[in-house]
Write a protein that binds this DNA or RNA. Structure first.
Lengths: 205, 205
DNA sequence: TGTACATCAGTGAACGCGCGTTCACTGATGTAC
DNA sequence: TGTACATCAGTGAACGCGCGTTCACTGATGTAC
């Protein structure tokens, strides 16, 4: 970081960074605008040069998160290659990987209470990201015989719920809800069993 | 409610009730001690006749929740009758039913940040409740051939995660994460597919 | 039944605190000539 | 290259607010005689 004088240079990014660290450490409501400012080495009032206020700062953190998240999901999905099944599994893993690597963003996105529809820009980037999972589910569901095929949205909702539950219950430091298994393993095996239940993996595989 | 004079009569219960309503409406951090007191028609200071402070009040709400939750789960499990499978499915449904019927309690238990190990009493009642799900999973897993049987704790962790995810993402009013399906349906079908994947339900059932 | 008194559940004022936000300001930077 | 000036990103003091918590108190209740 360059030596900072009166002007910070890149305060906006530094504030988001500080907010993310605080959110990660104390949850979305543990974060305060003043503390984020202090962490960036700046007066609380300076925040208002770059954001409309507290919520706007959180929303920006969430927006960043959805952007990275969307990129990761798209990269993992990779247009459904090499197979719909592989792409789907890869997308599920990317979900957890994101939550692990960017916990602050994850919380800002899913636990901060910031509405996805707060601004059109936020809605767009969020819908893109969440759309990838649904797309992967849609592709994969074509391999299920129509008469036993659940609607793709239901399908992706299941995977999303399982992933989110694993993150919330087992990938956090929350005391008392420990499990003898790694979150990665839990999600991987859980998705595996689920896909087997859909007949997408051979029973004895 | 009887007319109240200087003495409230049942302030402790009224405070917990007020806290639960606030938690349900605004989340665990939206609740304030002062507001809970006001809702019970009482000065904030009066709270300290019954609780050690804010956290103690939340912990009591959580304790109550685990008690009801444990009862419901045990009732649903019913000693594994009529079959391990039926008992297991019934237990899963009871989970969601609890979250729907007692949302304030649910949040106090799983999202308030109150540690299960805050007091031995809280730990006991929580472990009893969570133990039922694991017991149901253990019973059911005996019906899986040993070589493809996942550890029961993993099994129950999957179901817990799926249930929790459905609650958090789809059973709340959180905007933007709506789904065209009812949470009950999502959980029911999700668990069904999962159990099929374990070979516990016939593939064409 | 009536009175004295202990117990207890509430009051209400006060505290210190950190919050988000505003405001007039000032120091640094960049641009026109 | 040097100077005047506009622009902009920060300061720091102040605000009103609601919070959790404390304290000495007082009104209501229950019990002993």
């Amino acid at each position: 970081m360059p030596k900072r004088g009166y002007h910070h240079g890149n305060l906006k990014a530094a504030l988001v960074e500080g907010a993310l660290q605080l959110i990660e450490a104390k949850g979305p409501t543990g974060f305060t605008l003043s503390e984020a400012a202090k962490q960036a080495g700046v007066t609380p009032a300076a925040v208002y040069r770059h954001f409309e206020g507290r919520d706007d700062l959180i929303a920006e953190a969430a927006r960043e998160g959805y952007e990275v998240f969307g990129d990761l999901m798209e990269y993992a999905y990779a247009g459904g290659q090499p197979s719909a099944l592989a792409a789907f599994e890869s997308t599920g893993r990317a979900y957890l990987a994101f939550a692990r690597k960017y916990p602050g963003h994850y919380v800002a996105m899913f636990e901060s209470g910031i509405s996805i529809n707060r601004s059109p820009e936020l809605a767009a980037v969020a819908n893109r990201a969440l759309g990838v999972l649904e797309k992967a589910a849609t592709d994969l569901s074509k391999h299920i015989p129509p008469e036993k095929r659940p609607p793709p949205q239901m399908f992706s909702a299941h995977i999303w719920a399982l992933s989110h539950g694993v993150v919330e219950l087992f990938a956090r430091g929350s005391p008392g809800t420990k499990s003898p298994f790694e979150p990665e393993d839990l999600l991987e095996t859980g998705i595996g069993i689920y896909l087997r239940g859909l007949g997408l993996i051979k029973p004895d595989a």
